[in-house]
């Protein structure tokens, strides 16, 4: 198991790869990628049972990035885990790259479910969890969703089913950064007390600092019986690059050269690294 120290370092390097990827492809979503780095690190390094050498291992835990636009973060983590070479990152979103603008399970090793249309990933993940129980398989399913994404009715249809079927092999992780495309959640469409909502739907709920890998890990490892789990991770959109932090304008915009250089400097990453 990796130490907190090395995971903090990893987070910094993953953020560097995200920024470099977006700069290179000149398109993509920095804000929501930078906000879910620690969530992915907790899952991929501390919690999930996975084998990068055998991405389709039958009893692997499934991780579904329902907020698919944040896939640059996922791709950087998959590289670090050894699923495919790092040089692939610099072909993000280019013609014939296996790294699509949104996760594509038919193209990218390590991606279990294709996402991009918000709401669907959380529901598919629920279906996988239900199927696992039906097959008497013991793997777990984790779905990472955005706060704006919870405005989709489908999210609540999935939540209802997960509790109804008492899916204790199913965990929904919320990247609670407070922002979406047109502004803050509160301005666009208030989602009010999201934790209470999941509680009312029948989930066991937890709140945690979404940039503290150990804290996320602890909560993810807490056993819960007879209920699905909901983990609300308080995060900052654009985390780690000060001029992107908490700015909804950085949801889906690639950095220009000067912004790229500033970001890499702030992250302390050599651009030739």
């Amino acid at each position: 198991m990796d130490t907190q120290q090395s995971l903090t370092e990893k987070a910094r390097h993953i953020r560097g790869d995200i920024v470099k990827m977006l700069y290179t492809s000149q398109s993509g979503h920095p804000g929501g990628s930078l906000s879910c780095v620690e969530i992915l690190l907790a899952l991929y390094y501390q919690v999930a049972n996975l084998d990068p050498q055998n991405p389709k291992m039958e009893n692997r835990d499934r991780i579904v990035l329902s907020k698919g636009h944040a896939c640059p973060a996922l791709y950087a983590v998959l590289v670090d885990k050894g699923y495919f070479p790092r040089s692939d990152l610099w072909r993000l979103r280019q013609i014939d790259s296996h790294l699509q603008g949104h996760p594509d399970s038919s193209k990218t090793p390590g991606v279990d479910v294709n996402t991009g249309s918000l709401g669907q990933g959380m529901s598919i993940a629920m279906g996988i969890a239900l199927a696992a129980r039906h097959k008497k398989a013991d793997y777990r399913v984790f779905a990472i969703i955005g706060d704006g994404e919870t405005q989709e009715g489908l999210v609540w249809e999935a939540a209802m089913a997960a509790a109804h079927y008492k899916l204790d092999n199913y965990t929904v992780i919320l990247d609670y950064n407070g922002l979406q495309i047109d502004g803050s959640n509160d301005e666009v469409m208030r989602i009010r007390d999201i934790v209470k909502k999941f509680e009312a739907f029948g989930f066991e709920c937890f709140k945690v600092d979404g940039h503290d890998v150990d804290a996320i890990t602890q909560v993810l490892q807490k056993p819960v019986e007879g209920k699905p789990k909901f983990v609300c991770c308080r995060t900052a959109k654009g985390r780690g690059v000060s001029f992107m932090e908490n700015q909804f304008g950085w949801h889906g915009k690639a950095p220009a050269e000067i912004e790229y250089l500033d970001a890499m400097k702030e992250l302390g990453i050599d651009i030739n690294d």
């Binding site: 698919g68 979103r93 699509q100 603008g101 991009g116």
Partner: peptide
Amino acid sequence: VGEDGGSH
């Protein structure tokens, strides 16, 4: 739509 890909 280009770079966003087939899902969009």
